[in-house]
Simulated scan of single mutants.
Amino acid sequence: GRAFFQLMGTSPGFAVDHVLTAHLAIPRERFADGDLPRRLFEPVLEQVRALPGVRAAGMTSLLPIQRAWSNLRYTVEGEPPLDPGETPSAERRASSPGYFSALEIPLLAGRDFTARDAEPGQPPVVIVNETLARRHFPEGSALGRRL
């Protein structure tokens, strides 16, 4: 019991006060063309950001402490190839511009996502956590590196 109460006083690394979350059930058949961000997410976020008292708003496929087993295998450009069973994986979450601001999650380096990142023809952009950055780039920065 004592460990539980100590854990309750520990910061989770994101804002928990004055934060509202909502779940959107999205019918895949209506947005099967891959244009979901522009047609649905951006208009919803614009309306939420315009509400009185809202300081920041963003969307994510999964809240920080939820687990949905959405792991994605990856390789690091410039690293030697690994055996198939040794390829690392990371939990993947899609996030919109403003998500990190809304939860007051600090970016230690680099930048937030922008609407331009989702435009056709743009190279994919990722934001990695500190654990992945230290694992693969212990002597330097993850900025500019490719997964």
Rank of each mutant, 00 (worst) to 15 (best):
A25R: 13
G121K: 00
E104L: 04
L82S: 07
H136C: 06
L36G: 03
L40D: 06
A32Q: 05
A15F: 04
I26D: 01
F4K: 13
V16D: 05
A102E: 04
R73Y: 13
R38I: 01
R116V: 09
S89E: 11
A50S: 12
P84C: 06
I127M: 03
R49D: 13
D117H: 10
P81T: 02
Q66V: 05
L36N: 02
F5H: 14
L132D: 04
Q6V: 07
L36F: 06
Q66M: 12
L62Q: 15
R73H: 14
G144D: 05
I105P: 09
A102H: 01
D112K: 09
A118V: 04
A3M: 14
A56G: 11
S141P: 02
E119R: 09
S95Q: 10
R145F: 00
P124Y: 02
G110A: 07
E119P: 00
F4W: 10
A3P: 00
F14P: 00
E29S: 08
D83C: 02
A142V: 05
P84R: 03
Q6R: 15
P124D: 11
M59F: 15
D83Y: 03
F5A: 12
S61E: 09
L51K: 14
R93T: 08
E42Y: 10
F31V: 03
M59C: 13
L45Y: 07
T21S: 15
A15Y: 07
R111P: 01
A115E: 12
L72I: 06
V128Q: 01
F14Q: 02
H23A: 13
L82R: 14
S11Q: 12
P124V: 11
P81G: 07
A118F: 13
P84A: 10
A15S: 09
E29D: 14
L20S: 12
F31A: 02
G53C: 10
Y99H: 06
Q66Y: 09
E139I: 08
T60K: 04
L107H: 05
R111K: 10
V19R: 07
V44I: 13
